[in-house]
Design a protein around this nucleic acid. Sequence first.
DNA 1: CGAAGTATTGACTTGTTTCAATGTTAGTGG
DNA 2: CCACTAACATTGAAACAAGTCAATACTTCG
Lengths: 251, 251
Amino acid sequence: MNPLNIDARSLLELRLASHSPLGAGDHELLSSLSFRIEDLPARQIFIREGDEPHHSCLVVSGVVVRSRYTAEGQRQILSVHIAGDMPDLQSLHISRMDHDLESASPARVAFVPHPDLHRLCAASTLLNTALWRTSLVDAALHRAAIFRNGQLEATSRLAHFLCEMHLRHHALGLVEKDGFAFPFSQELIGEVLGLTIVSINRASQALRARDLIHMQRGRVQVLDWDGLARFGQFDGTFLHLRQDAPMARAG
Amino acid sequence: MNPLNIDARSLLELRLASHSPLGAGDHELLSSLSFRIEDLPARQIFIREGDEPHHSCLVVSGVVVRSRYTAEGQRQILSVHIAGDMPDLQSLHISRMDHDLESASPARVAFVPHPDLHRLCAASTLLNTALWRTSLVDAALHRAAIFRNGQLEATSRLAHFLCEMHLRHHALGLVEKDGFAFPFSQELIGEVLGLTIVSINRASQALRARDLIHMQRGRVQVLDWDGLARFGQFDGTFLHLRQDAPMARAG
DNA sequence: CGAAGTATTGACTTGTTTCAATGTTAGTGG
DNA sequence: CCACTAACATTGAAACAAGTCAATACTTCG
């Protein structure tokens, strides 16, 4: 399944329906949303800290990250987003951006005007709740990051992160026999985990030496899920995914 | 102003009205909420990871923390909550708790049944939005923690955390001439910042030596706000507080 | 007063960073 | 197709921040 083949509207509908089914008129409401699709090259900051955007974006394909910088110019990546995620949904009710949004790989992003979303929320309690819940799962991802970066040593941190990425790709049906697309340089991973590129390099060697993963050419393959999850102290329930339901089987 | 003198209902109303004014009937709707008030001793876990509670709680006084444990039994505190916060508001739409809730000091907590909150949301778009926004500010606090714990060294981390605590207490009108109540042992601070008690001890000595803060008997006084904020690279706008409006002046 | 919890200190160990050099890979254009 | 380049990955050695261990003080409270 190629993520580029899913259109933004179905992707959003699949996401919003992933926890509990939507109502009768909700499909039509979603169809009435207007999108502006943009194809971004890698490393493009398209929303900045301090901005007060009048749209929220939906990642259609590729990887988008939220980030914040130290006074010395070091970057902390706050979260990593793939197809179906809405990394600045919060701007719907909190006007000022407290972080940047940047494409980590070439990415296709759909921009949805806030007025459209407000109209949707006013018209359907179920959609309103589904969007709210989406932002709550987002917060759960943040909590996982606080735990991971605060308590785990380098190698476990990487294992935890890869478990999360695997599971989220799996939920979209994006994991194939040879793993999933993971266009992250070691430097970028370091900025996610609060570690230097050298530590990431050694950590990834450690995971490979234990035959837990295989990383090559922007793809990651989990060879031993249980082992990796144990090593990274990963408990996937925080993602609040319906376990058996890869979200985008339909695509 | 003694926080124990504010009742839970006004506290909640002040919080929900803190960003934008509520509507005409909203005060009555809030009055119809049913609460169960509980006074907890320090160090009491009152909601556990894996629980599926049918109420959300509001901190009326004292300090409540969200936490998760490593396999080795080390605790990471995910967030710190004071009066007016609703640390498990997310359980309204995500059934399973992904962390514990524990009193860090003697605390008064109000439990609001989910059906009451659902009724409120259904009856008032403004209240619905205000609650959603509350959970979005909660996520913004998480992002601040990811940045702080990922990029700052021990002393700056502590400075950043104390800035946040000061600002949040200030917004409630809880900062007096001799600072604000801060009933945190160094061990607990360490669990917030992902550091050991020894590092916290040395970091707090460093901040005191620079005349940035004064800490004694469970109180913290910020002596040099600008200096502390610079040292901790703290930018308070992420709290999304209305700057000039201490929330609970009414109390 | 005694006990328990909390804070402080010093000496030592360890994981991570820093610095710097060398390989490797993917993409470009001759 | 190969040479060239830029980005990315790997390695080793030294420096450093934070952790660990362990002992000693201070507070609070029954």
